[in-house]
Amino acid sequence: MNIYIQIAYLVASILFIAGIKMMNKTKEARKGNLVSSVGMLIAILATVVQVQAITLVDILGCMVVGSAIGLYFAYKVEMTEIPEMVALFNGFGGLASVAVALSDYWLKTQEQAINVDAITAVSVALSIFIGGITFTGSIVAYLKLGGKISGKPIMFGGQHMVNLLLLIAAIGLTVVSIMNQADPIFILILVAVSLLLGILTVIPIGGADMPVVISLLNSYSGMAACTTGFVLNNNVLIVAGALVGASGIILTQIMCKAMNRSLVNVLLGGFGQTASAA
């Protein structure tokens, strides 16, 4: 890869770090967000200059459509509805990581009929698993916060056992898919299992705990971007993803403490239904 592109990615990473740091202080927070968005712009430009001229129309077209949708909802939404909007955006980011990892995997194993090495294959599986949970989990959080489905915890018998079995199934599917890369069925089932797990892990959590859950899912989407960085061998994805993944976990803990809750308590679900305000 071109050295100038690498340098641009490095600059973008620095701006993300500086931006997050500035967002710790009330006075500098807005500027910090701007600094981080400049970092994103640099990363995007450095990537767009690498592409073939013939695909530029597709790329710019998709970006314009996506940005327009994002901006429309960002400005249209009521102030009180912002947390659920963040959840929705976060879910889209998670699904994007799933699609990127699956796209790269599909190109190599199906269209070019080559096997990828174990490190890449595990990274693909992790991106799909974490990104899939992020997507459906965020959608459930969005629906609960918006009152489109009941904010009450939805529980059923043996819920934790089902989740555990799905987790084991995901690990098994990862192993089988790595050994049988020519057959895409296993990786596609992994997509389905991840999406299902996202729903099942968030529905038992009460509406009042949703901000904490969104913060955790935000951390997950960072981790998904990070594992996608391992698939594509791309440093800026790893740095930005790891920053969000780690800071998201800490922020989740801080938020739990502020609410006098433990993270384990929130994740096991069934609490928080007494407080109606979310």
Partner: peptide
């Protein structure tokens, strides 16, 4: 804000 940063997957 950090959610927006996790959109870095746009590069991929």
């Amino acid at each position: 804000g950090s959610n927006a940063i996790s959109g870095i997957t746009i590069v991929g």
